[in-house]
Design a protein around this nucleic acid. Sequence first.
DNA 1: GGATACATCCCCAAAAAAGGGGATTTTTAC
DNA 2: GTAAAAATCCCCTTTTTTGGGGATGTATCC
Lengths: 203, 203
Amino acid sequence: MIKIFVVDDHPMVIEGLQTMLLRLPDSEVVGYAMTAASCLGYFMHHTADIILLDINLPDQNGIELCGTLRKKYPDTKIIALTNFDQLSYIQGMRDAGAQGYLLKNSSFEEIDTAINAVINGGSYWLGHEDIRESIQEHNQPLLTRREIEVLKLVAEGLTNIEIAEKLFISVTTVDSHRKNLISKLQVKNTAALVRVAIENKMI
Amino acid sequence: MIKIFVVDDHPMVIEGLQTMLLRLPDSEVVGYAMTAASCLGYFMHHTADIILLDINLPDQNGIELCGTLRKKYPDTKIIALTNFDQLSYIQGMRDAGAQGYLLKNSSFEEIDTAINAVINGGSYWLGHEDIRESIQEHNQPLLTRREIEVLKLVAEGLTNIEIAEKLFISVTTVDSHRKNLISKLQVKNTAALVRVAIENKMI
DNA sequence: GGATACATCCCCAAAAAAGGGGATTTTTAC
DNA sequence: GTAAAAATCCCCTTTTTTGGGGATGTATCC
């Protein structure tokens, strides 16, 4: 019996997955969590074979949670669950140790395929060929933690000076980060930076 | 018995809603569609009391479909179903004749409340107070044609000088537009301007 | 006809960002 | 333990934005 745990903050998705997974002969949903905290709470006393993990959680980033879970419970496989357009996070999930990635609009068959692939030691990265390609080729100019932090504050309208005060670092450092961001995302100013960042769901 | 029809291209959401709605004593899901076309096909020969309608459909915009359905079948109420961040579409849905609006991460209770409100001739616009306010009061800080034109170019990363050249107007004029944009959207610089503009789907 | 909104233009000064360097210390990864 | 990556800091100059004014012609709406 494959024990599956679902982490998602959408009641509909939890219900939907539970119903769909009932049709799989050798699997059962042993529980679910709507926050990262309650997920970690569950695994302190229970276990599971596969976690279906949403990236957007209210209290913590799904990627971080994935990293934490994989470190603590290396035997539990993780399949990321996201919406269609969040390309940029996929690589993060892969780097965080996930074995698979499913789109939220996946069919029952796809979910079945993914679970079977992962439980047998394999991996499952997307159904859509084109997306898979665009991840492997494109390989995303991945931003660092600090850069993303600065980027978010920039998009909120803070100036370098304000950001420096907020993060307790020098203005020149913030300026460096901003320059690196502009360079990495190949834009020419802050306005375009914010647009590209939002379009690629980096913030 | 309240007859409910679900339109969404996510199998999980369909399953989830079906399961959740089973708990409502006086209602039943009479069918579902994953495309606008199949939805219209259904209503050629069947009927329903309420349609739970996703905005993102593969073949047509949910807002357009809402307008079409309301015109053809005025007795069928429509509750829009969307993700959290698509604020700008809500007004479109309201104008298209929808009676309610639900977030996809709504709880069972919220869905129940919304359906009851609508079936009794009322309406249900969001659970989140702050969002409801921002729609009713705010009611669009409407930008002029020219301002939107400038805004788009700003978001592309063009400087005032470049925009002026592109539109064959003076730099000071572009500057005025930019100032008005910042003032109208109540932000303090271009970075925040671009973010807010994208969030509200103005560009 | 008069009010109103829109688009256009101008001045000035201060603040911030952009563009070009380079350098050091911490973390992280193997 | 070492190499690479990330985060930190500094210099300089030029360009651009921001913030405060104000003004004029032209549609548009009632």
